Structure formats: C-alpha cells, structure tokens
Amino acid sequence: MIRDPNPAWEGRYPYEPLEAAGIGPESTQTEVEKASFTLMTRRLMNPDTQAAWNELRDLPRRMLADALLYDLDLGDAIAAARERLEREREAAARPPESTEIPDVLPDLLAGFAEDLPPIEMPPAPPTVLPEAAEVFPSRSVFDPLIQFDQ
C-alpha cells in the first residue's frame, strides 16, 4: 500500500507514529486495539502515539485513513508499462505509411525560388600556392617514417 503524499489529513498521519508498534493498514482492528500495550512496553506511548492510536481505534476515522492509501500491484503495473513502451518503440521504428514525396513540394519550392532575388556571384579567385609549398618534401620522404601497429 502506498500512501498519498499530500493527504487531506489534519495533523500527522496516524499510521506513522504506530509503525514502531507494528501497526499498519494491514493490521486488524483487534491488533490496533491491543497496540497500546506494545507501545507502553516499548516506552513509545507519548501524546503523539496516543492521538494516533485513538484515531485508528475509531473505525470510521480508520476507514478514512485507509481511503488515502493506494493498493498498487507493482508487478502488473511494471509489466503493463513495459508492454506499452515496447508498442511505442515498435511504432516509432516503423517507417511512415507513405514514403512518396507529395506533389505539392516541388511546386512549393519553385514558388520560393521565384520570390527570391537573383544572386550574382563573381568567379572564384585563382589559387596561388606560396613558394614554400614547392620545396616541401614529397610523400616518399614521410612514408618510411610513419609506422602503424598491426
């Protein structure tokens, strides 16, 4: 059982102070009634545990406290989440239904091209190598110096 993290409960949630006495939502009403003896023998009876014990002895109040708990079957919840995740992964891995490019796309691109002003580009300048490049050693000089691990 998992408790609501923000319960609409005034004061401390009654099961918290009684956990040391082994009292929880699964405890029977008889065990709750006899919890005072356990609390006194363990020297845990104080105003806080007394108030919690009084709240849980009142059956309507205990039922309200239990209504704030969620009974989760984590095994089933995890299995269902895994199945959903697998379905989503498979759906994401599948290619789209249609791989054809819509007929509208070329017309749309042509329309964009007509709206743009023409761009004039001058020819690229010729590449001029510095004189040092001509005296740079050839590849045959470096090949014997480079060795790779086999």
Rank of each mutant, 00 (worst) to 15 (best):
E31P: 01
D66G: 05
L109A: 09
A52C: 02
L85E: 13
T127K: 11
T41M: 14
R3W: 13
R61E: 07
E131I: 01
A77S: 13
R139W: 09
W9I: 06
D48H: 11
A21M: 01
D107H: 10
P96D: 08
R87M: 10
R42Y: 05
A77W: 08
I101P: 00
F148I: 14
R89M: 10
E55M: 08
P14E: 01
A92F: 07
A67P: 06
R87K: 14
P5H: 07
V32W: 00
E19H: 06
G111T: 13
G111V: 08
G75P: 09
W53T: 00
A80Q: 11
D71R: 14
L72N: 10
L74F: 13
T41D: 13
P60T: 07
D107P: 05
R43G: 04
A91T: 06
L72G: 11
L59M: 07
G22S: 02
P14T: 03
L108M: 11
T127D: 09
V104Y: 04
L39K: 00
P137V: 02
E33D: 09
Y15T: 02
P130A: 06
E86R: 15
L105P: 01
M63C: 08
F136G: 02
N6H: 12
Q147D: 15
A91F: 06
E97G: 08
P144L: 07
M1E: 12
S138V: 08
P122L: 06
L108Y: 12
R61W: 03
E90H: 08
F142Y: 15
T38F: 03
R61Q: 10
A81V: 06
V141P: 01
E114K: 14
E114D: 14
P117M: 02
R12E: 15
